[in-house]
């Protein structure tokens, strides 16, 4: 904001503004512009969260809620949840899902992104392939669930038939039996969401400075060394972000479970978020559901904090924030 001394057309409020102040509108204007979203988020996120924290410590269920007769029970809901086999079962499922769903997606996505960037020479082809590989992510989750339920139909589904034709199996796999149904969900989820780490790592790789690679080439580094010493260290934060996002999503992962298995058979493919949903919405055991929700919330809060830390770094580096 240098000396702008043109005279006649300057409006009075512009002439009168205090020098050195970056703001040339009234002080309340930016506050007003920001306050609308903030107030809405208070109403539909903060207030419900406080409500859940409160009821996690009460013995609320549907009847007591409408009579207004709930009472304080301390941490009994949490004790109940932590003592229940159903909860620990879902935690085991979550760990399986994290290692073979979320982690696999990030590793696979990162590998595919780097392979795509390094080996496909034509720009147009690379973009086309990227779009095709990222496509599943943009499909409605309920459709993904339906399509995979159909593909995995044990008796005459396409996957069983394809595996039979390829000679990989001798008899139909019962994809929706206990012990297998979780894996069916994971397969569908890997198909659906490998695209996200792929896109994140690919865009991270695109933004790396070419000068570094020129230097490496001059120094005679081969592809493997370049990958290990330059690309991966420089993409460290980006890959961390991809992991964190997938882990956050794991904590709220409900839709595919819902559409494909409904947590079954016999609760064998349940994840914590699904139980929170079931107990709260179907059984209306609000206290218990709230306890589940708070546990999920705490882990989410940790991950969100981590995410913000890393994204600040990356955004700063890329000149966004």
């Amino acid at each position: 904001m240098t000396a702008k001394t043109t005279t006649q057309t300057e409006p009075q409020w512009f002439v009168n503004r205090k020098p050195g102040r970056s703001i040339i509108v009234a002080r309340w204007v930016p506050v007003a512009l920001v306050s609308a979203p903030v107030l809405i988020l208070f109403a539909i996120v903060i207030y419900p969260t406080i409500w859940m924290f409160y009821h996690a410590l009460q013995d609320t269920n549907m009847v007591r809620l409408f009579q207004g007769s709930w009472s304080y029970v301390g941490f009994a809901n949490f004790a109940g949840v932590l003592g229940a086999e159903r909860f620990w079962n879902s935690v085991v499922n979550l760990l399986v899902y994290l290692s073979f769903g979320a982690c696999l997606q990030v590793l696979l996505g990162a590998a595919l992104a780097l392979i795509l960037y390094e080996t496909v020479k034509s720009n147009a082809l690379r973009t086309t392939l990227l779009i095709l590989m990222v496509l599943p992510m943009m499909l409605p989750p309920s459709i993904v669930g339906v399509v995979w339920r159909f593909l995995l139909t044990p008796s005459n589904g396409a996957i069983n038939q394809a595996l039979l034709n390829l000679g990989l199996i001798d008899s139909h796999i019962e994809w929706f039996n206990a012990g297998v149904s979780l894996w069916s969900v994971i397969i569908a989820d890997v198909w659906n969401w490998t695209a996200l780490p792929l896109l994140i790592v690919y865009s991270g790789r695109v933004s790396l400075p070419p000068a570094v690679y020129e230097a490496a080439q001059v120094d005679g580094a081969d592809g493997w060394t370049t990958l290990r010493r330059i690309t991966l260290p420089m993409l460290k934060e980006i890959i961390a972000i991809a992991f964190i996002i997938r882990f956050m999503d794991a904590l709220k992962f409900v839709d595919l479970v819902f559409v494909m298995t409904s947590g079954g058979p016999a609760q064998s493919s349940e994840l914590p978020a699904y139980i929170a949903f079931q107990r709260g919405i179907r059984s209306f055991e609000i206290g218990e559901a709230a306890a589940y929700a708070i546990i999920i919330f705490i882990f989410s809060a940790v991950l969100i904090t981590l995410f913000l830390k890393y994204i600040k770094k990356v955004l700063n580096a890329q000149g966004f924030a």
């Binding site: 979203p37 903030v38 988020l41 859940m52 709260g280 589940y292 929700a293 708070i294 969100i304 600040k312």
Partner: peptide
């Protein structure tokens, strides 16, 4: 700004019941 962004990552199951009642 970052707080606003963090709402996007919030697990919706944590707020479904009060939102429904609201």
């Amino acid at each position: 700004a970052f707080w606003i962004l963090s709402n996007r990552m919030f697990p919706p199951v944590a707020v479904l019941i009060p939102l429904f009642l609201l």
